[in-house]
Design a protein around this nucleic acid. Sequence first.
DNA 1: AGTTGACCTAGAGTTAACTCTAACAGTTAT
DNA 2: ATAACTGTTAGAGTTAACTCTAGGTCAACT
Lengths: 129, 129
Amino acid sequence: MFKISEVVKQCAISADTLRYYEKIQLLPPIHRNDSGIRLYNKQDISSISFIKRAQYMGFSLAEIAKLLAFRKDPQHAKTEVRQLANDKLIAINEHLSQLKTLKNELTLLVNLCNAADDGCPIIKGLEIP
Amino acid sequence: MFKISEVVKQCAISADTLRYYEKIQLLPPIHRNDSGIRLYNKQDISSISFIKRAQYMGFSLAEIAKLLAFRKDPQHAKTEVRQLANDKLIAINEHLSQLKTLKNELTLLVNLCNAADDGCPIIKGLEIP
DNA sequence: AGTTGACCTAGAGTTAACTCTAACAGTTAT
DNA sequence: ATAACTGTTAGAGTTAACTCTAGGTCAACT
């Protein structure tokens, strides 16, 4: 059983965020001691790690809530979760190609900038369209 | 001179957004006719295109405000704008590598999902750490 | 006994970038 | 002339995901 400060350290998350997750029911009501202090158990820690990892992987908290629900009933999860992941992959690919384009354009402009005498080519580049 | 509805079509932007940009002084006060109707001139259209393009390129409205200011005084812009673009490039590279990792992990999990019999490997994959 | 320090709460504030609402005015079409 | 359309405003609401504030309790040290 871990007090909130221990979870803060272990999971690299703020106490506010932990309480917030509980408030929005992303986490279940956490067990309390007689003084009302939250005591997180291993399952809670596992859920928090799950949340952080899923978040890093691009899932929103709303999506993570579904994933956590599915985690309790894996038999029924397969199709829906795969759909969720597939949708994410499509979005990520779109995002990736946009970022690559942006990177190329910016790199070009920054390089041009090193050579230019008059004005700033970054500004000019943005003016073209 | 273009009425707001024309700008909406030409620039693929909402009237609300145009008025919002003027309110936050990203755009200058737009010329009005006797009835108080906004009439955008070519310079305004150019600024709006500039904004949209810069936005697509990953600049925030706050950054774009600076770029627009610099656009009026290109002589002094070079260093600062290049710095802005350089910072953006660094952030984009970071973002790109994170997205690539995420894509690889998700692809792997989705592929595993096709083969699994018990539970959902996406869920299990998230549980590992 | 007193003072930190960690913890608690409800609720407000933050951020970016819109988006919507209500209520009104002027323009165009029939 | 009347209905429909397009425009106007100030200001409130939205979204996600926190983050902070004020005011309080409780346990541990000095």
